[in-house]
């Protein structure tokens, strides 16, 4: 039997359309990389000249036209810590419940997952409204670090739950059964076997959620952020400055654009650096974890 003979141009046409399509995809992908580098490069280029020790350690002065951004950096770090204190314990426990206790097919897990997914889709400004109505007004915390941390904590909760759940899901059941077969209780199994194994991935997720919190502006607009609060906060009921809010205020409602634009570039650069550090840290942890798995 003779081999099937394709018309001569057939293959070339197919090849051409493939080359065309894949080439286009490649160009579009490269353009995304270019966009990222344009944004990063632009801000690094413009901000690098502003960034020095004084900028990082001084309070703003002369009506926000001079000085540094130290209170905003401290405020953002405090808010990150505060939201972590809210979201981490609750989120991790919730993730453990979903993966270790609740029945996988029952309505509770389906319901909680639906609610968690919905919460993660709620726009950040709605969290801001909610935080203002509940924490600032109803519970009477006022504009404070406490109210801001609680709002940001709730915002990052779905992310923490999801990472915990996914980290625990990949741990094989055999390991749990082995521990239970040795006479350990369920709690001991979770505490001594499951959590330590899942920890690296949970920590990676937690770090990424901190990154998200560090850049959020809308939720703290009405719960915490102060336009100008040069001294450092002394209690959780104080307002504080925050980097993203500072950038927003300075770049939109500045009074002296000439003097304030460098500060805006500097603030944006510090924000970007925080995000970069967090992403690199998370990436390194992930690699380290993967290597550890391979050895086993």
């Amino acid at each position: 039997m003779a081999a099937p003979v394709f018309p001569k141009g057939y293959n070339i046409k197919k090849r051409r359309s493939q080359a065309l399509a894949f080439g286009m995809f490649r160009i579009l992908s490269i353009s995304i990389v270019l966009i990222l580098f344009a944004i990063l490069g632009f801000i690094i280029y413009k901000g690098a000249g502003v960034l020095d020790w004084d900028f990082l350690t001084e309070a703003p002065s002369d009506g926000m036209t001079a000085g540094g951004i130290m209170p905003a950096i401290v405020g953002t770090l405090l808010l990150m810590a505060g939201s972590a204190a809210v979201a981490f314990p609750v989120g991790i426990m919730s993730g453990i419940y979903m993966n270790e206790y609740a029945s996988k097919t029952g309505w509770t897990v389906r319901f909680i997952r639906l609610m968690t997914n919905n919460l993660s889709g709620v726009p950040s400004i709605v969290f801001g409204l909610f935080g203002m109505a509940l924490f600032v007004k109803y519970l009477g915390f006022g504009d404070s670090i406490l109210a801001g941390s609680l709002t940001l904590g709730l915002l990052s909760l779905p992310l923490v739950i999801r990472t915990t759940e996914e980290a625990l899901k990949d741990i094989p059941d055999g390991i749990r059964e082995g521990s239970l077969a040795l006479g350990a209780t369920r709690l001991q199994t979770i505490w001594k076997v499951v959590l330590p194994m899942g920890m690296p991935r949970i920590i990676t997720g937690l770090i990424l959620s901190l990154g998200r919190v560090s850049g959020e502006t809308a939720p703290i607009l009405f719960t915490c952020a102060a336009y100008f609060f040069p001294q450092l906060p002394t209690s959780v009921f104080d307002q504080c400055m925050a980097l993203p809010y500072h950038l927003y205020v300075i770049s939109t409602s500045g009074t002296d654009i000439e003097a304030q634009q460098p500060i805006a570039y500097g603030t944006a650069l510090v924000l970007i650096i925080i995000v970069l550090i967090i992403n690199i840290l998370a990436g390194m942890l992930r690699k380290w974890f993967e290597r550890r798995l391979k050895i086993k």
């Binding site: 995304i32 927003y248 770049s251």
Partner: peptide
Amino acid sequence: LKPVIELLNGIPSVVYGFFGL
């Protein structure tokens, strides 16, 4: 590419706004 996309996701929205402005 994957970290690039993740980084794009991690950049705060005010920074995008600032860049846009």
